[in-house]
């Protein structure tokens, strides 16, 4: 095969994306665990991880631009590099959602949770599972999986709806919980957005494989669940 070096560089970039995704998954899971356990220290670690994610994202972006400039990629290669650029951005945003949850935990300080967390950890697990499989689909260019995963977004939306309704009942019963309930709602909303962004990763994977760039019809709109 011609262009062995270039092919290797592309593979390294794909691997770098998966690694970045793993850090982001860890951040998401840790942010929710820290919130449930009211572990401020753990949340502070996430802020550090976010810096790492940002750094890696710019490294990937830079490498992609260098390859575009020096290798004149065409067709599949070009689609892959464009997608890597996009996916790196998506992962960084997901990292920001985890950071948002960490901030919530830190700002809550000593305030107790309005209720024990049940559905929010489930949302985190589901989103991370989707993300993990989406990254595997991207790595192996599995078009079938990339088309199937976004459908699972409905489950996350359903959990979000459940959390929303539950928190509403708390608010109605005791309006003084408004701030604490709002914090949790915010955390749930961030997790719902993570799942939406997984859909974007899947879109890019499909684009890499067959060159069709089209929005997958899933509930990108967080209000549809309501």
């Amino acid at each position: 095969m011609l262009r062995k070096t270039f092919a290797q560089e592309l593979q390294q970039l794909k691997d770098a994306i998966v690694e970045l995704g793993e850090i982001v998954q860890k951040m998401i899971m840790q942010s929710v665990t820290a919130l449930r356990n009211r572990d401020i220290q753990s949340s502070k670690e996430i802020l550090e991880l976010d810096k790492e994610v940002n750094k890696r994202r710019y490294e990937i972006e830079n490498q992609v631009l260098v390859l575009i400039a020096t290798q004149q990629p065409m067709a599949y290669d070009l689609r892959l590099l464009a997608s890597i650029l996009e996916i790196a951005g998506e992962l960084e945003r997901m990292g920001d959602y985890a950071k948002g949850i960490a901030h919530i935990n830190i700002r809550m300080g000593d305030t107790p949770l309005v209720k024990p967390l049940i559905d929010i950890p489930r949302m985190a697990e589901k989103s991370c599972d989707m993300l993990s499989r989406a990254l595997q689909a991207f790595l192996h260019e599995d078009e079938q999986a990339a088309k199937a995963i976004p459908r699972e977004d409905d489950e996350v939306d359903a959990l979000y709806l459940q959390v929303y309704r539950e928190l509403m009942t708390f608010l109605i019963q005791d309006p003084t919980t408004i701030e604490r309930a709002n914090w949790l709602l915010w955390a749930a909303h961030n997790l719902e957005r993570v799942a939406d962004r997984v859909t974007n990763i899947c879109e890019r994977t499909i684009y890499v494989v067959n060159g069709v760039l089209r929005e997958i019809d899933s509930s990108d709109d967080e209000f549809r669940a309501l």
Partner: peptide
Amino acid sequence: TQDYVTGR
């Protein structure tokens, strides 16, 4: 075509 334009 794909193989040609990507240099493979």
